[in-house]
């Protein structure tokens, strides 16, 4: 279980990226963080990954408080971030340091076949298309068998067809070990396709506005009515998140009203 408790992040320049985030993600659950740009989604993932430090609050994984990068937490970035000097299979094996050679090989080739790139094992990243590179990056994160997998808009740079095929690859890998997944996205369809729960966030400062359970059975039919309904519900919540004035605290509204008085 991944628990975020009163998590806040204020950058050195005073920008409040996140304020008082409380969220519990159950084991094996796929949670999607959704919201407009600048609402701290990526910041939140970087905090969980241990790449940035929270200004306040803490992150717990089961009984452990996370203070930095943790072996049980994997991340797939927005860009593939493959190491250009390593072959595809060496890139996937990058995080498998303490693992014996034979097992390493077996795990890498299993991950490669799962993402459908087994015939590209010995090529350089530069020879792959953007979608293939992102598949390698997903395999690199999965191969260490993380308990928690963080996905930071990993499909946002890809076209709709590639994205759909990557959703399949991702769910295929997820089925095997069922890690907890936190998926950041701004694509409502993607959230409904993959997640068990959608967390709608609101900007300035980043905080959680609403939670919507997505209980559709898998595999999900993207053309069915329940899918459409869920998409609409999230869109409505997003609309609310952008109509900030109504939802701002009373005091803030009073202050603005005072400023507009004359």
């Amino acid at each position: 279980m991944l628990a975020l408790e009163h998590l806040s992040k204020t950058y050195a320049d005073g920008t409040r990226a996140l304020s008082d985030i409380n969220l519990t993600v159950h084991e094996g659950e796929i949670v999607s963080l959704i919201g407009g740009s600048g609402c701290g989604k990526t910041t939140l993932l970087r905090l969980i990954a241990g790449l940035d430090r929270a200004s306040a609050g803490r992150i717990r994984l089961d009984d452990e408080v996370l203070t930095g990068p943790h072996p049980a937490v994997g991340i797939v970035f927005q860009e593939p971030r493959l190491l250009p000097w390593l072959s595809v299979s060496d890139n996937i094996a990058f995080g498998l340091d303490g693992v014996g050679a034979a097992e390493k090989k077996a795990r890498v080739s299993h991950a490669l076949s799962k993402v459908g790139l087994i015939e590209h094992a010995d090529r350089w990243p530069r020879d792959l298309s953007g979608g293939q590179q992102q598949r390698v990056s997903i395999a690199r994160a999965f191969v260490t068998n993380p308990k928690v997998l963080l996905l930071d808009e990993p499909f946002s740079a890809l076209d709709a067809f590639t994205r759909a095929s990557l959703h399949e690859h991702l769910l295929g890998l997820w089925e095997e070990t069922r890690p907890t997944v936190v998926l950041v996205t701004h694509d409502v369809q993607e959230a409904v396709t993959l997640a068990d729960r959608a967390i709608v966030m609101q900007p300035k400062p980043g905080r959680i506005l609403d939670e919507l359970p997505l209980t559709l059975s898998r595999p999900r039919d993207r053309t069915g009515l329940p899918f459409e309904t869920s998409v609409r519900r999230i869109l409505t919540a997003l609309d609310h998140s952008l109509k900030a004035p109504q939802l701002q605290p009373q005091r803030e509204r009073d202050r603005q009203a005072a400023a507009l008085w004359w």
């Binding site: 990068p69 943790h70 994997g74 860009e79 190491l83 990058f94």
Partner: peptide, 11 residues
């Protein structure tokens, strides 16, 4: 920096 972060993630 992005590649260095990959190194950080893998500790």
């Amino acid at each position: 920096r992005k590649l260095v972060e990959v190194g950080h993630v893998f500790r």
